[in-house]
Design a binder for these strands. Structure first.
Lengths: 167, 167
DNA sequence: CAGTATCCATAAAGATACTG
DNA sequence: CAGTATCTTTATGGATACTG
């Protein structure tokens, strides 16, 4: 069996009313902070997709597996157990033959989905901008490398010329 | 040098106006979908924190390193390059001695921060609920295991009794 | 069907050392 | 200071076998 988050409890949001300016660099500073742990969990690649998909209707294990392209059986099981443990997803076993297990968002999970959705919507809205930024960046890097190569070649040529002259 | 996202372009949001019900399981189904790739990037553990921290003011490399507890130099450099490539963060080199490099959110990055913030706020708001859910889950699992152990012991006892009787 | 358990190959993250 | 290069460790994914 694999373990989940069994490290130190480490709650860090108990700083009370401190200086607002310094709080900035402190709000989720410590790694063992509970908020950081939760964020790591829900901002996870697979968790995000699972929650997004479960919003519409309950889904079975295999339905999720098919819907989330690229996830392994192991990772899906793991992700679902984590989400269940955090109270975001409920697992319902129907005592039928063959067995049927439905996963669905809890009330808590549904509230999370709202913010997740805004993230997805943002991504869709700015997809093109990001693609353009990437293209521009890659082009710039390529140009810089070419430039560096040219300069290196030039230095080489000068060095060779000097050596030839000295000879 | 490490490469970034250089796989197939794979845009999948071009399905136009299809059946809304089926679109659900298709909206980010394919792994090489551009939206999926962007989500994986921005929903990343470190990216999230970097963007959250950069919202307040520009920060230097080392400031970020100190502010994001637990991040390695390598991962910070990597994360920042990714964010820069995606046009979310700008990198400004000041030609001073010692060198000074400022990172700050771009306009695009600032819009993303809005949704990231809602995620962080959600986490803070529901931190306690999640903690309770975890405790309840862990307790339930422990009880189930105890129960299973008891049943196994009982079966053992019965089996032994039968064997004794047969003997 | 819905998993868990295990072994293995690979990829990502971490630690460390070194450079402009 | 702001990184890159390199090596090590850990996490993840794939395949397979096995339960209830």
């Amino acid at each position: 069996m694999e373990d989940g988050t069994s490290r130190s409890p480490g709650n860090c949001a108990d700083t009370g009313a401190v200086d607002g300016e310094f709080d900035v660099l402190n709000w989720d500073a410590r790694e063992d902070c509970e908020v950081r742990q939760i964020l790591d969990r829900i901002a996870d690649k697979w968790s995000l997709l699972a929650i997004a998909l479960l919003d519409r209707r309950p889904l079975r294990f295999t339905e999720l597996r098919r819907a989330i392209d690229g996830i392994s059986q192991r990772m899906l099981a793991r992700t679902l157990r984590h989400l269940e443990r955090d109270g975001l997803v409920s697992r319902t076993v129907h005592p039928t033959v063959p067995p049927r297990v439905d996963y669905e968002l809890t009330t808590l999970g549904a509230t999370l989905h709202e913010t997740i959705k805004s993230l997805v919507v943002w991504t869709e809205d700015h997809q093109r901008e990001i693609a353009e930024a990437r293209t521009a960046y890659d082009r710039r890097i390529a140009q810089e490398q070419e430039q560096a190569a040219r300069e290196a070649a030039e230095r080489d040529a000068i060095a060779r010329a000097v050596l030839t002259g000295e000879r």
